[in-house]
Simulated assay, not measured.
Amino acid sequence: MREVRLAGGFRPGRSVWTTLTGWCMVLSATAAVGAALWGVSPHPPLRTELGLAGLTVVFAALWVAASYRARLRPLDKRPAGDSGAADPFLRWLLATVIVLGTFAALLQFAMVSAEYGRETERLKSVGYGPREVPVVRSAGDPAHHPASGDSDEYWVTDLVLRIPFDSGPREVTVPAVYTRDAPPAPGTRVSVYYAPADPGTEVTDDGQRMEPGPVMTGSIALFASPLIIFGYCGVLAVMEAEDVHALRRFRPRVHLPALGLLLTGLLLLLPKAQGFQVGGFDDLPLLAACLTPALAAVWISRNS
């Protein structure tokens, strides 16, 4: 491993504070990525995820300050360039955070809008969901769709349904109710979405809401697993264990540009994460933000 010296002949030092703030920085970044993947905040603003990301920025600044202070005092007794045996765990952890952090940023493309999320929360509060209700009568002629090569036979009918709201049952006309085999006769039951506590909410047979969370993340991760594995192997290939271990000692020409790239990525995430647009765009800054972890990893590998 090459001996590392800073301007003026100083060798980057370590202390209890550099170790503490460094690990807090890594762990808070890991927690931010984990919260984004889990979908702790189901819609913008992503307060928990941004709070953890902000905490990471604070710990990064403290780590830089502690490193500058440590280099001014002869705290390290090891020979120059020797910082102990390389620990592969840190390399694996950083590779995991970089790859999953990029994936978590890409997931924001599937994030619902703030308005959609607030409406979903309101619907939950009034018990919105699918339930079977009785058919009173048909409100129009059924439209028959015969079986074809890629679909079974089905019917679409405007129906008058009896909806048991909390305030009492009401007859509601629901357009375009889908049924298979035959149009429903009076007295049969069909499944529709409605809110028992709010008769003003629309009754529909197609009211499923998209909710970000572990299930959606897992489905997308399964579909994208080849790319995730390829990215993980690629990061491990460019970040050797000795180079990653050397990152524990602060070097301005390596760390400051890398931290600057990651901070830029966080700022580019803000429009999507907070639910606002910049110049009419929120997806374009998000796309640029997704590139910053990989750019930081390449910078580190090229300059370590």
Rank of each mutant, 00 (worst) to 15 (best):
198 D>W: 06
198 D>K: 02
202 E>F: 03
202 E>K: 08
203 V>N: 03
205 D>Q: 07
205 D>R: 09
207 G>S: 03
207 G>I: 06
209 R>M: 13
210 M>R: 15
211 E>F: 10
211 E>T: 13
211 E>M: 11
211 E>P: 00
213 G>T: 04
215 V>E: 10
216 M>C: 00
216 M>D: 06
217 T>S: 05
217 T>Y: 13
218 G>I: 05
218 G>M: 03
219 S>C: 05
221 A>N: 05
223 F>K: 12
225 S>G: 00
227 L>C: 01
229 I>E: 08
229 I>D: 01
229 I>N: 02
229 I>H: 10
229 I>S: 09
230 F>W: 15
231 G>R: 04
232 Y>G: 08
232 Y>D: 02
234 G>M: 06
235 V>Q: 02
235 V>T: 10
235 V>H: 04
236 L>C: 09
238 V>G: 02
238 V>E: 06
239 M>F: 10
240 E>F: 08
240 E>W: 08
241 A>W: 09
243 D>Q: 15
243 D>A: 13
243 D>R: 14
245 H>D: 09
246 A>I: 00
246 A>V: 00
247 L>N: 07
248 R>Q: 14
248 R>A: 13
248 R>C: 00
249 R>G: 02
249 R>T: 08
249 R>D: 08
249 R>N: 04
249 R>P: 00
249 R>E: 08
251 R>I: 01
252 P>S: 06
253 R>Q: 05
257 P>V: 00
260 G>L: 01
260 G>M: 06
260 G>V: 03
261 L>C: 03
261 L>R: 02
261 L>T: 03
262 L>Y: 03
262 L>K: 04
263 L>P: 01
263 L>A: 15
263 L>W: 05
265 G>N: 02
267 L>W: 11
267 L>D: 02
268 L>Y: 04
269 L>K: 02
269 L>Q: 15
271 P>A: 14
271 P>G: 11
273 A>K: 07
275 G>E: 04
277 Q>L: 00
277 Q>A: 12
279 G>Q: 03
279 G>K: 10
279 G>Y: 12
279 G>H: 09
279 G>F: 14
280 G>H: 09
281 F>S: 11
281 F>K: 14
282 D>V: 03
283 D>G: 12
285 P>L: 12
286 L>I: 09
287 L>N: 08
287 L>T: 12
289 A>R: 10
291 L>A: 15
292 T>H: 02
293 P>H: 07
294 A>L: 11
295 L>H: 01
295 L>N: 01
296 A>M: 02
297 A>F: 06
298 V>K: 13
299 W>M: 05
299 W>S: 00
299 W>L: 01
302 R>C: 10
302 R>W: 12
304 S>F: 10
304 S>P: 05
